Simulated scan of single mutants.
Amino acid sequence: MLRTMIGRGLATCATVLGIALATTGVARAEDIVLKMAHVYTPGNIWYETAEAYKKAVEDRTQGKVKIQIADSGSTGDWPQSIEGLAIGTNDIVLQSIGTLDRYGIVAGVEAFPYLIRDLDHFRKVYDGPIGAELADAIAAQTRFRIVGAGYRGARHLTANRAVPTLEDLKGLKLRVPPLKMYSMTWAKLGASPVPMGVAELFTSMQQKVVDGQENPLEIIESMRYDEVQSHVMETAHVIGAMTFIFYDARMKRLPEDVRTVLIEEGRKAMDDASTRMAAMEAEIKKRLQGKGMTFVAVDRDAFAAKLADMPDAFPDLKPWVEKIRAVK
């Protein structure tokens, strides 16, 4: 009798536990720990986006899925972090889509100059059918799965002098991310691009190893480039997209309901970040001006015209460029 009662009690507990897990939307998730890496520091919007994603996933799964974050580049810079996805030391990396172009050219379309026009166009591209198609193409070519797209703001050129025209760019030693798209863009514009990791950039500008760099305003502010650069040229040459990057094969091995949570909350976190960033750009500009930086208008049409034949240099990207430009 006692054995029967205990057996029934255990069965009842198991049933209740099964119902509780099912109602969380992650019925099969047990003690899943995912390691995320990024290079952003406390106070930066992308640092906060990572924290918001962690909280949303853990809350929605009632702690059955946990995300451990290594921030501020504590486990390496972004190329090392992405390599960590392939070998399994990382499960998620927060970085721009274009950083995957070393694994497959299609990801480089994110950094294509004068392609995304504004925030409205950004959302129509990345949140629409083109964005879904692009994510699948990137996964097929690079083995990495992108989740969500966060408006990073426009990238601008900085230097210690005004550079209002293409003529003024000649001879400018310009640090660029170690990606083919950026190097070709600035070489065609007349500068002398110097591929370099971000970790050494501040010191390189301080010691005059390079004359300038290009980044969104939030990076210029958070990395304190105003301390070593005096002018911001409003080139707005790239409107980039941040994303959560997973190793596709490993992600597919997760329970389907876990993948659903990771994808849905990732998209929401990036969408929220897009809204925040759009509101922040004007505020950041004012703060940088208050710190002594001079903002210089440039003839963007002249810059874009100089790059008109760029699609021909990237035949694999040309169809994507045309599709994205056609989105109204």
Rank of each mutant, 00 (worst) to 15 (best):
F295M: 15
S274L: 09
M293R: 01
P255A: 09
E264D: 11
E281A: 10
L254K: 11
S274H: 05
F295D: 10
A304E: 02
T260F: 07
R253D: 12
R287F: 13
E256H: 15
G290Q: 06
G290H: 04
F303E: 00
A269S: 08
F303N: 01
E264T: 02
V298I: 10
L254S: 09
A273W: 02
A273M: 13
M270G: 00
M293G: 06
M277R: 01
R259T: 06
A282T: 09
V261E: 01
R259C: 13
I263Q: 03
R259L: 06
R300L: 05
E264F: 00
D299W: 12
T275A: 12
T275I: 15
K306S: 09
I284N: 03
A273K: 05
A279I: 11
Q289W: 05
M270I: 03
K285T: 12
G292C: 02
E283W: 09
E256M: 15
F303S: 00
R287M: 09
I284A: 05
D301N: 12
R287D: 12
K268N: 04
V258K: 03
L307S: 07
R276Q: 15
G266D: 06
D257G: 14
R287P: 11
T275Y: 13
A305I: 14
R259K: 09
L254A: 14
T260S: 10
M270S: 02
V298G: 02
M293A: 10
A282Y: 14
S274V: 10
T275K: 11
S274D: 07
R287E: 15
R253I: 15
D257F: 09
M277N: 04
R267M: 13
A302G: 09
M270V: 02
K268S: 08
A282M: 07
G290E: 07
D272E: 14
K306E: 03
E283Y: 01
M280N: 15
V258C: 11
T294H: 12
M293F: 05
A305M: 12
E283H: 15
K291H: 11
A302D: 11
A302E: 13
R276G: 07
E256Y: 10
T294E: 12
E281G: 06
A302W: 12
S274R: 04
A304C: 08
R253W: 09
M270W: 01
K285N: 05
R300V: 10
S274K: 02
D271Y: 03
A297I: 06
F295Q: 12
D271H: 09
T275M: 12
K286V: 14
E264L: 04
P255K: 04
I284D: 00
F295I: 15
K286I: 10
V298T: 04
G266M: 01
M277E: 04
V296T: 06
A304Q: 05
R253V: 15
P255Y: 03
I263L: 11
E281T: 06
E283T: 08
E283P: 14
T260D: 11
A273D: 11
G266T: 05
A279H: 05
R253M: 15
D257M: 07
V258D: 00
K285R: 06
S274G: 11
